[in-house]
Write a protein that binds this DNA or RNA. Structure first.
Lengths: 260, 260
DNA sequence: ATAATATGTGTTACTTTGACACAATAATAA
DNA sequence: TTATTATTGTGTCAAAGTAACACATATTAT
């Protein structure tokens, strides 16, 4: 519905996008030891919704997902991965408020056509993104009021099947943790081992042993310990680490574990 | 295009199915120590294609995939799982031969409408299935000549991006091997340990140590050794095993490995 | 009988994991 | 200044899991 921050006519929305298919984004961020998700507040309901949108006629899925992510967060070149397609027949109608749509778009002469288009059943392809919390400037789109981070464990009431989409994303993320490095995208450049551990604990929803965690992480050979320590905090100053980009990328490709 | 083995009018195809979205099936079978995939030969080309089809308006993705699988294999209630959505903008046109379509459907008065519909860009959702080779009776649909098993390592020339879809399915299958039991769906009820090992070796594309493999498999506690041995074969008679349905199902749910 | 081939089972060294303890450090309070 | 406190850094040890490997046994072919 939005293009370069400019509203395009409803007719063009129909003409330029694939029918019946949408993309929804589960954007994960990590802040103050909490795993957060970016949510939009719809104008017509009290519910919240995942950021998302449609796929242009000439656009690949990945490209569409990247464009939509970038329009909400300003970010580009971040970790973004398709994880599941959701297609229950009744998932769409729960998503829309017809009366509201009519009011909202009454100015446009193609309103009826558009409303018919958008009320059709949609299949949505879920992508999840890992982004650095502090670098994101959430921007609502033209049809939503707010764009806010929400703690993944204190989610508000969500539209349609978005709750279930988030749960699937989280489940996927937890699985990925086992054979892919994560953190480069969720943490600032420099971070401490306890911070990295806290990220893992938050995603997994359970506590880990400090010493065993450190041993395991270091064994992956994707971390570089910096000569400086983080001072100013309370108590003993922890070492700072950064990811070694090269070995991190390699680990992304080949996986962390030797499986079978 | 097919419903209860009856051809429905082209108009109904458009009316009853979601536009722009299709399903493709990668059906794995195991026979004589070879991993096989079910392929259809198209009427219009020398190429082969994955079995697939469209999603009815009131049908969930899983239901559609099951219906399509059942219409090709006669099988129901088998392992069938969504693994990826494919949506390159040019994936569709490579898939269709306009001249052929015109000839083929010229009888139907809605041919033009249908051809326009089917030439639009399609996003396809890939499902992979694990089935017992011997129980499958491949049936071609009305618009394909043959339905045949093909060795996964000796695939013929495939339409559009179907080669890449298969590769992604295989990659997914290899990953699943690490935390999900497989075999119940690919092997006959009773089988020997060497047969099970051969299945794993074929999927992974590498050899495994006999003794270590057996130890690992048995440690999963999903196998039951039968008192009988398989006689009649050459050399020493191997024991027969079968999967314990209950613990197999449980392992499917909870995963084989304790990860993190 | 003997050879050939595949199956069943066991052992050993090595690596990884889980559970746990103590020393070092930086801020704070006395 | 010194002691206290909370947190970080590092090490150890037992248990479990894995990789590499050897020998006995059963069946067929000669």
């Amino acid at each position: 519905m939005e293009e370069n921050n400019e509203i395009v006519s409803l007719k063009n929305v129909i003409a330029n996008n694939l029918p019946s298919v949408s993309i929804d984004l589960v954007v994960f961020g990590f802040h103050e030891n909490h795993l957060k998700i970016l949510l939009l507040k719809t104008l017509d309901k009290e519910n919240w919704t995942l950021p998302g949108g449609f796929i242009k006629n000439d656009e690949s899925l990945d490209l569409a997902a990247n464009r939509l992510l970038s329009s909400r967060t300003g970010l580009d070149q971040v970790f973004l991965q398709q994880f599941h397609a959701f297609g229950d027949p009744d998932r769409t109608k729960l998503n829309r408020n017809i009366e509201f749509l009519k009011k909202q778009f009454s100015i446009d002469k193609h309103a009826d056509e558009f409303i018919e288009w958008i009320l059709k059943r949609f299949i949505t392809i879920g992508f999840y993104a890992l982004v650095e919390f502090t670098e994101v400037k959430p921007v609502p789109d033209a049809y939503t009021i707010e764009c806010q981070w929400h703690d993944v464990h204190e989610l508000p009431s969500l539209v349609s099947d978005h709750q279930s989409i988030i749960e699937t994303a989280l489940k996927t993320l937890r699985q990925q943790l086992n054979y892919q490095p994560i953190g480069l995208n969720l943490l600032p450049q420099k971070f401490t081992m306890p911070e990295l551990q806290s990220l893992y604990e938050t995603i997994l929803g359970k506590n880990l042993d400090r010493r065993n965690f450190q041993r395991k992480m270091l064994s992956y050979k994707i971390l570089e310990r910096l000569p400086v320590k983080r001072t100013g905090g309370a108590y003993k100053a922890p070492y700072l680490y950064k990811f070694d980009k090269e070995s991190y990328e390699e680990a992304l490709q080949s996986g962390l574990k030797d499986l079978w």
